[in-house]
Simulated assay, not measured.
Amino acid sequence: MEDYFVWVTTRRIKPGTLEEFERAWRPGSTPHGMRRAYAYWSEDGQEITGVSFWDSREACDSWRNSDGEKRRREAMAPYVVEEQEGFYRGGELTIPGR
């Protein structure tokens, strides 16, 4: 199984601010070491989960401590009510019958 390094963030945002939040949330350029990123929204548009895949824990930590990420978080702050995040290591599961 190939190991993946994954950063997951879930944010609850103020009602009616999804469009503004989404603009603030996207980084200006692809962070070094990021392989892929996905975003998932709740039906009411008030909870967003971001999942990003990284080359290593160090690459993710480097981005998280960068000025670019600091500016991005400052831009998101007016819309965020609550935030949770975690860093994980794992791999893709094999689904029987496929």
Rank of each mutant, 00 (worst) to 15 (best):
V80A: 01
E58K: 06
K70T: 11
G91H: 05
G28Q: 08
E20R: 10
D67Q: 09
S29H: 08
S42G: 02
R11G: 03
T17S: 04
V8C: 00
E43T: 11
V80C: 01
P27W: 01
G50D: 07
S42F: 03
E69C: 14
R36G: 08
G50H: 00
E47R: 05
F5R: 07
S66C: 08
T94K: 05
R57K: 10
S66L: 08
M1R: 09
V80S: 03
E43Q: 11
F5G: 02
N65V: 10
K14G: 08
F5D: 02
G86L: 02
Q46P: 04
E19D: 04
S56T: 12
V51C: 09
W7M: 11
S66I: 07
Q84M: 15
M76F: 00
R73F: 04
E20C: 05
K14F: 13
R73N: 10
T94N: 04
Y88H: 14
W7T: 03
Q46L: 06
D3G: 08
V51F: 06
A24Q: 02
R89Q: 15
P96S: 01
E85A: 11
Y79D: 04
G28R: 10
T49C: 10
P27N: 00
R98H: 11
M1C: 11
W41M: 06
G33T: 02
Y4K: 06
V6S: 05
I48P: 01
Y79P: 06
Y88I: 00
V8P: 01
F87Y: 11
V8T: 02
K70G: 15
G16Y: 04
G91N: 03
E85K: 12
E19M: 07
P96K: 03
R36I: 04
R12G: 00
R98T: 15
G91F: 00
D44S: 03
G16H: 00
W25Y: 14
P15A: 13
T30E: 12
I95M: 15
D55L: 08
S52V: 02
F87A: 11
M1P: 08
P31G: 07
E83W: 02
C60L: 09
E83Q: 10
S52H: 01
G97V: 14
T49A: 08
R57P: 02
V81Y: 00
R98Q: 09
N65S: 12
W54M: 03
A39Q: 12
